[in-house]
Amino acid sequence: MRQQLQFLGLDKNPFTCSCDLMWFRNWFVSRPTLFSHKRSPGLIYKCNNLHGTNLADFMMTDQACLLSQSVNMAIILVTSAMIVTLTTVSLVLRFRWHIRLALYEVFRGRGDVRRVRLLADHFEYDVFVSYSKEDLPWVQERLIPELEGRLGLRLCVHERDFIPGNNIVDNIVECVQSSKKILMVFSKDFVHSQWCQFELTFCLTHVMDYDDTLLIVCVDDVTSRDMTPAMMAVLKTTTYIQWGDHSDAVDSFWGRLRLALHEVTDMAVVVDRDVAVDIAEAAV
């Protein structure tokens, strides 16, 4: 059908010179009289996308076109895969503690398993307290008098109970494993302490391994932009207790904390009762 054409005027079309147009370019060069009318012998066909280039002068080899298409497809596929992978990795890293805590809540065991462990294992401390050094005055003046003085619990406090000369990491690991519960004192200073962040990460892993929960108290207002991903995950999945300076808030704080420590205090009552029974039986 092409051979029957006498004249084909396409000079006013915006030609995009690329591999897709090579068939037409080759046809144009092979039959120049077909595209040039005797009344307008000077018709010029130009590449609209290549300034100053005539269609007849445009040239690309078949190998170049084949390579270009395959390479472009490969680049698109590889780039898309990399974007998806990097996005997925970034989201997993950013929300890794949210994911771990969510999975933990789904697959966690029953509370009686934790209770059996509390009864069976030997613990040196009732509560391990994680806090920044700037919050030590609050721990010494508020927390210790209430939990040790009134409730009779044994707290593990860094400055008092860590063994001098031992590696700090070893002290943290041993004390956490020797404590029935873990209490974390969140604050603005806690956010910026590298040791506190290490303790938080280790303690999260510890409570997940032993089907336990963290006790969280906030002694000041910590904004979300200052928190680490682990802290945000904990606060979003755990009911924390907020400290307040006025009397009603203080009473509510200690009441809620005593309620949160009921497992430890109940164990202490059971142990004391058992000791009393043993003493009575020995006396008889």
Rank of each mutant, 00 (worst) to 15 (best):
R117K: 11
V207L: 04
S132E: 05
R117S: 13
Y131R: 01
V84G: 10
W23C: 12
T33P: 08
Q69Y: 05
S130C: 15
H192E: 11
R25N: 09
S187T: 01
L55Q: 04
L34P: 05
M60Y: 09
R114W: 07
V234I: 14
F35R: 05
V217D: 01
Y125S: 01
P164K: 13
T238E: 13
A249P: 00
D135Q: 01
M1F: 07
T53Q: 14
F123I: 03
V139G: 00
E159L: 02
F190P: 03
K236R: 14
R154G: 03
L153V: 06
Y45S: 05
L55T: 05
D126Y: 01
I144G: 00
D161M: 06
T87K: 10
Y125C: 04
H158M: 03
V250C: 02
V270G: 00
M227R: 12
T85W: 10
N167G: 05
V250A: 03
E281S: 10
A230M: 06
P145F: 07
S40E: 09
F128K: 02
H37Q: 12
T16N: 08
M232I: 07
M22D: 06
D62K: 13
D251W: 04
I172N: 01
P32F: 08
D220R: 09
G52N: 15
L91G: 02
V116E: 09
S224D: 06
R114L: 14
E199H: 07
H158S: 11
A230T: 11
V29C: 13
R256Y: 12
V270R: 09
R2Y: 11
S40C: 08
C65V: 10
S252G: 02
R110T: 11
R39N: 11
L235Y: 05
L77I: 13
E174Q: 14
R114E: 10
H51F: 09
V29I: 13
V207N: 02
D221E: 15
L21D: 01
A283K: 11
L43T: 10
C47Q: 08
R154Q: 12
M227L: 07
F58Q: 03
M231N: 00
M184L: 15
Y240M: 10
C203A: 15
K12C: 08
L143K: 01
S90A: 14
L235R: 15
G244D: 03
H158E: 07
S132Y: 00
A268F: 05
D226Y: 07
T205Y: 13
V222A: 00
W254H: 02
